[in-house]
C-alpha cells in the first residue's frame, strides 16, 4: 500500500477518517483526541487536504486498533449535525437497509 503520506489526497468538502475496529470489525471514526469513536458526531472533521492527510497518517499509525483507515465524505447540516456523505457510509453507520432474518 502506498504510504498515506505519499497519497494524493483530494477532498471535496468536510471529511472524516473511518475504519473498522480490529477485535470485532465495528465501524469507527477517528476523533480529535488521537482515539477512535463509534459515534460519527464525535469524529474529527477536516476541511483541507493537508488536515485530512495528517489525520489519516495518525490513524494509519494505529495498526493495532483499526483496520484500513480511509477518508470519507460527510455532510454537516445547518444545525451542525454530521451525516455520512454517501450511501455506502450511511449503510456503514446505520447498518443494513433490510430487515435481518429473525426466527419465526
Amino acid at each position: 500500500m502506498t504510504s498515506p503520506l505519499q497519497q494524493k489526497i483530494k477532498i471535496n468538502g468536510p471529511s472524516v477518517v473511518t475504519a473498522n475496529r480490529t477485535w470485532d470489525g465495528v465501524v469507527i471514526y477517528r476523533d480529535a483526541h488521537k482515539g477512535w469513536t463509534t459515534d460519527l458526531a464525535q469524529a474529527a472533521i477536516v476541511h483541507t487536504a493537508d488536515d485530512a492527510r495528517a489525520l489519516l497518517a495518525e490513524s494509519t499509525a494505529d495498526d493495532v486498533g483499526a483496520i484500513g483507515p480511509y477518508i470519507a465524505p460527510v455532510a454537516v447540516n445547518d444545525n451542525g449535525v454530521v451525516e455520512p456523505g454517501n450511501l455506502r457510509e450511511q449503510i456503514r453507520r446505520q447498518g443494513v437497509t433490510i430487515d435481518l432474518p429473525v426466527s419465526a
Binding site: T22, G25, V26, D63, V64, G68, I91, R92
Partner: peptide, 28 residues
C-alpha cells in the same frame, strides 16, 4: 498475536483469509 499487536494487519490479512475471514462494511 494480531490482537496483541505482534502481527500487523498486512501480515495478518493473508492468514485470516486462509481461514475464510474477510472484512466487510460493518464487521468481519
Amino acid at each position: 498475536r494480531r490482537l496483541a499487536g505482534e502481527l500487523t494487519e498486512d501480515e495478518f490479512k493473508m492468514l485470516r483469509l486462509m481461514n475464510g475471514v474477510y472484512l466487510q462494511l460493518h464487521a468481519y
